[in-house]
Every structure is written in C-alpha cells, then in structure tokens.
C-alpha cells in the first residue's frame, strides 16, 4: 500500500510517523513523508532528520519531500493526485486540562480527503 504521512511539528507528528514506519516494516507499505508548514531552514532540516531517524530505526526506506503552502490542502492534493491509499497525520494535541484538540490541518484533511485518513494519538 502507498502511504503518505504528513508531518508539520515535532511533538504531534513523530508518533504518526513511528506508527506508520513500524507497520510498514511488517507489511511492506511504501511510505512517503511530506514535511508541511512554514518552517525556518533549521527546523525543516530537523524534521527531516527526525523522519530519517524513525525510518532507520524501523528499518524501512522512505522518500521525504518538502511541501510548501497550506498543509491541509497540499496533503489532500498530493494524496489524490498521486494515488496514495492512506493519508496519516498527527491526531491532535492536548490542552493543559488534558482536552484533545484537533488542529486546523487535521480538520481540513478529515473533511476533504477522499483517501482513508488515519489520525495517530
């Protein structure tokens, strides 16, 4: 299966990538990582390094690309245009109280993607 993982922040996205990479190691899924959102160069490189490290730990190859523009719509566009079968994103953060909040990227993807979407907590 061709899986697209969107990562945009270290805290929310690493879990999504770890889960995807672990599964891919078992199933042979092809994993593409899209680094989304506006980042300074250093932060962008750090996200890429994180992604490489997770993939190496799981023992899989991933292709990594940097995507500019609005994260939600870019992910939905790429997933559809390139025929990905699953789109994986971070599933929200927690408020000080422990309330789960879903960010605007996740909401956009859920409402607009025609592919299966997995939110990872």
């Amino acid at each position: 299966m061709d899986v697209l993982v969107g990562i945009g922040s270290p805290d929310e996205s690493v879990a999504a990538l770890e889960r995807t990479a672990t599964r891919a190691a078992a199933t042979g899924d092809d994993v593409t990582v899209a680094i989304v959102g506006d980042h300074a160069d250093a932060a962008r490189e750090a996200l890429e390094a994180d992604a490489r490290a997770v993939a190496d730990d799981a023992g899989i190859d991933v292709s990594i690309r940097h995507v500019e523009g609005d994260p939600g719509s870019q992910l939905v566009d790429i997933a559809e245009a390139e025929g990905f079968e699953e789109l994986v994103i971070g599933g929200g953060s927690e408020s000080p109280m422990g309330k789960i909040t879903i960010g605007s990227t996740a909401e956009f993807v859920l409402l607009n993607a025609h592919t299966t979407v997995t939110l990872v907590r």
Partner: peptide, 20 residues
C-alpha cells in the same frame, strides 16, 4: 465526555486527576 476527558478507565482517571 468532552474532548477525551474525563478518561474512561479508573487508572487513567487518577492520572488525569493528579494533574489537575
């Protein structure tokens, strides 16, 4: 429940209560 709180299991309720 709202946005995941309160949690469902007693052990998780206690962890959550310890925080708040």
């Amino acid at each position: 429940r709202a946005q995941g709180i309160p949690p469902g299991k007693e052990s998780r309720i206690r962890t959550w209560l310890d925080g708040i």
